[in-house]
Design a protein around this nucleic acid. Structure first.
Length: 553
DNA sequence: GCATTGTTGACGAT
DNA sequence: ATCGTCAACAATGC
């Protein structure tokens, strides 16, 4: 199908003076197709400078991090980004241009480029994340003072988050249904107009700016890591379009797609499209994806949002909108939509979870897949997120969020935080009595435990009767399976039955407090509740011990 | 105030 | 495979 997006005529001012230069600043939106900023930058300019800035904060090796990578990102995602940059560089070269890679604090680098190259027009995709809101404000301030035209279109999402918030009376909708009601159809949904870029203006003189090619992982200062320990997913627009074509070739699969029915244990052929990392970096346009889906839907009976494939794109927009409209969205404190809950500060439990040694094979296998692939099925994410927070360990969702943010190749600020709020029953979803069992949830999809055997080879010879609960295997079986529990594979860090019961009790008390104080729970209120819960637990342990004592002693 | 709804729980009965 | 039960939440709409 043709790429078909129109820009409103007012955006297309082609009467620029000759000799003018435009700068296209790539951040997300690492694609040529459906890229309004790139298109606008290339129109009516004699020179085009396509720039990507390597932000040391994001890219520089950090030996103190808990996994290989920078302070903010694991190596898998850094590599995915570099692959995406190589791909866009190749595409630009085919169009008579190239990618100019620079290093440094992005606003400083950008401002220097604008001066040096006498840029008259600066184009970049609008970004709703707080980091870019701050950064972009600096760059825009400079540009407007210097008389540089700025074009910053919303093209990462289907809708403009600020439009939706405005339509909803200044607040973002807080449920999917209310979001859907307000959103309606995207403005561009039925305006097919092909805008395939066939050539680009040449890159002008670079003067004294230091430009490099896209660096390799090694050049960024990282050790080479064994291929088999890295993600099987390759970055880039070409790969994204290939994956999309493959996914939508099976029209029946697209029409019948129901997210909650997917199999989280499928790893040879994942149950979902795995387009999320490409959407995250903008290697794939969500709007192009949307139009491809509509193309298929119009001829066949199909599932509907929220469970359909289209529904997944709308979830993405939903979280982007709430995240944009909610101050302190990424933390509990000061977040008006987040329940205040006295989470435990327990680094040992957190480390056990993060390092895949909780002793629950289903949980640990998922965490290994996260570390190796940087991707796991949505329901697998639910399992481990629920386990860490309200289900078993009662560790703060922000801690789990940090681990996902670092390791996922598709980690996306709005969506990741939104889902952690959801799974921890801090917002959006509140039925804390519905807990995923770390034993039976995986078993119902994969009774043989093939997923566990693949990601936890230490358990590969454990009989299927015990693979979800290896600590219950008789010693003789453990010996035969070459896996002694407590030595080769850990014992469970908690008993799921008692831990989940305890969690439910804590959630009930925390909810009651939030309700009583109308959500205005102070640090002190939370401290008091935490103390109360600790005392109750001590008492509980004591009475249990007493019950165990032989009668008559 | 009350009924309904909410992307995806576990478990047991049919 | 589909249902009711368990125990039970908040937001929404009437």
């Amino acid at each position: 199908m043709a790429l078909s997006f129109s820009l409103s005529p007012s955006c297309l001012n082609t009467s620029m003076a000759s000799g003018s230069a435009s700068l296209m600043w790539f951040r997300k939106g690492l694609r040529i197709h459906d890229n309004p900023a790139l298109e606008f930058a290339s129109k009516g300019s004699n020179y085009l400078f396509p720039v990507f800035v390597i932000d040391p904060h994001y890219m520089e090796s950090d030996p103190n991090a808990f996994s290989p990578g920078s302070t903010r990102s694991g190596l898998n995602r850094i590599r995915f980004l570099l692959e995406s940059l190589v791909d866009i560089d190749l595409s630009l070269k085919k169009l008579g241009s190239r990618l100019l890679v620079l290093k440094g604090e992005p606003s400083q680098v950008l401002i220097r480029c604008l001066k040096e190259w006498d840029v008259k027009r600066l184009c970049f995709e609008y970004d709703t994340e707080p980091y870019y809101q701050d950064l972009d404000a600096k760059v825009k301030n400079y540009a407007s003072a210097a008389g540089i035209e700025v074009f910053s279109p919303v093209s990462h999402t289907l809708f403009s988050p600020s439009d939706i918030i405005q339509k909803n009376g200044g607040k973002s909708p807080l449920s999917y249904q209310s979001f859907m009601k307000i959103a309606g159809q995207p403005s561009w949904a039925s305006s097919p107009l092909s805008t395939v870029i066939t050539s680009l203006p040449p890159v002008g003189s670079l003067r004294s700016c230091e430009i490099s090619e896209v660096p390799t992982i090694k050049e960024l200062g990282y050790e080479d890591i064994k291929q088999e320990e890295l993600t099987p997913f390759r970055g880039g627009e070409s790969e994204a379009l290939k994956r999309l074509t493959e996914a939508i070739r099976d029209k029946e699969w697209v029409a019948k797609f129901e997210k909650p029915k997917g199999d989280p244990s499928a790893f040879l052929r994942p149950a979902t499209s795995v387009l999320s990392p490409y959407l995250k970096f903008g290697c794939l346009s969500s709007r192009y994806f949307y139009q491809c889906l509509q193309d298929i839907y119009k001829n066949v009976q199909h599932t509907s949002p929220p469970v359909s494939l289209l529904g997944q794109l709308l979830w993405r927009d939903f979280f982007y909108t709430v995240a944009f409209g909610t101050p302190n969205f990424d933390q509990m404190r000061g977040n008006r939509i987040c329940k205040q809950i006295p989470w435990k500060d327990n680094d040992e439990l957190l480390a056990a979870w993060r390092e895949a040694r909780t002793g629950f094979p289903w949980i640990d296998a998922i965490m290994v897949q996260l570390c190796q692939w940087g991707w796991m099925h949505h329901l697998a994410r639910h399992s481990v997120a629920c386990f860490l927070t309200r289900g078993d360990l009662f560790v703060h969702w922000e801690k789990g969020r940090d681990v996902f943010e670092r390791l996922l190749i598709d980690s996306d600020w709005a969506i990741n935080n939104g889902n952690w709020l959801w799974l921890s029953c801090s917002s959006f979803f509140y039925q804390y009595n519905r807990i995923y069992s770390p034993i039976s949830f995986g078993k119902k999809y994969d009774p043989n435990g093939d997923y566990i055997r693949h990601f936890l080879p230490v358990l590969k010879d454990m009989p299927k009767e015990y693979i979800y609960e290896p600590w219950t295997a008789p010693q003789s079986i453990q010996i035969r399976a070459n896996c002694i529990i407590g030595k080769d594979y850990p014992k469970p860090v908690v008993s799921h039955d008692s831990a989940s019961k305890e969690c439910k009790g804590k959630m009930a008390q925390a909810y009651a407090l939030n309700q009583k104080l109308n959500g205005l729970v102070s640090e002190e209120d939370l401290r008091n509740l935490r103390r109360k819960l600790d005392e109750e637990q001590k008492h509980e342990v004591k009475t249990k011990r007493q019950r165990k004592l032989p009668i008559g002693n």
